[in-house]
Design a protein around this nucleic acid. Structure first.
Length: 202
DNA sequence: GGTAAGATCAGC
DNA sequence: CTGATCTTACCT
């Protein structure tokens, strides 16, 4: 029933997922940084930076489906990034998981990441997936079902800060990134080189 | 059937 | 700052 808590707008869901614990096999990690992504211009959360902006495709179909599913995609051919779908079934929205602190299964995570400091094991969306062993095979997995291989447990709402999303070239000024202040795993902000200057239209 | 672009990371 | 390396979407 917890998936219902994510049947909201992506900004609320992104804040709600801070402090949540994500578990894949022996590794579990506390989420400390998220980003909200919306959908097409005619939907409730128009977002030109979202994969779903130009409508549903086989790749982004999970974003349009029910909340509480894992949407994975490959970035720049190399990395896998993970999102949690949110909003009601039929509305495109998701929360990108950007950083987490490993809580259990540290050895397994460290083995997958090679040399990396403890704080950096799951820093950055690509590294987070690498540390937890999330692959494209997890696309569409139900995070609140038993046996899907990936699970999320929501915690108490926690204090957070917000700012612009990392690396997006559209809607670059929208403060849809959220993080737990003081967490060592939070990634540094880098604006996309393709984004218009700050203060531009959104 | 070809190609441009991308919500990244690591290494100069 | 640049290269790695692959999937998707959109064009012809």
């Amino acid at each position: 029933m917890s998936a219902n808590e994510l049947s909201t707008d992506p900004v609320t869901a992104a804040r709600r997922l801070l402090g949540a614990v994500l578990t894949v096999g022996p590794v579990s990690a506390r989420i400390v940084e998220t980003e909200a992504y919306g959908g097409p211009p005619d939907g409730p959360w128009a977002d030109a930076a979202a994969h779903s902006y130009r409508g549903a495709t086989p790749r982004n179909a999970v974003m349009f489906g029910p909340p509480g599913r894992l949407y994975t995609y490959r970035s720049h051919g190399i990395h896998v990034c993970a999102n949690v779908s949110c909003g009601p079934d039929g509305s495109a929205a998701a929360v990108l998981l950007r950083a987490a602190m490993i809580e259990t299964g540290y050895d397994a995570a460290a083995a997958r990441r090679g040399a990396a400091s403890a704080d950096a094991l799951a820093r950055g969306p690509g590294n987070l997936c690498a540390a937890l062993g999330i692959t494209m095979e997890h696309n569409g997995a139900d995070l609140f079902a038993v046996g899907s291989g990936v699970a999320v447990r929501l915690g108490e709402p926690c204090r957070h800060e917000s700012g612009p999303r990392v690396g997006v070239s559209r809607a670059a000024d929208r403060p849809w990134r959220f993080w737990v202040p003081g967490s060592a795993a939070v990634s540094a902000y880098r604006r996309s080189p393709r984004a218009p200057r700050a203060g531009g239209s959104d």
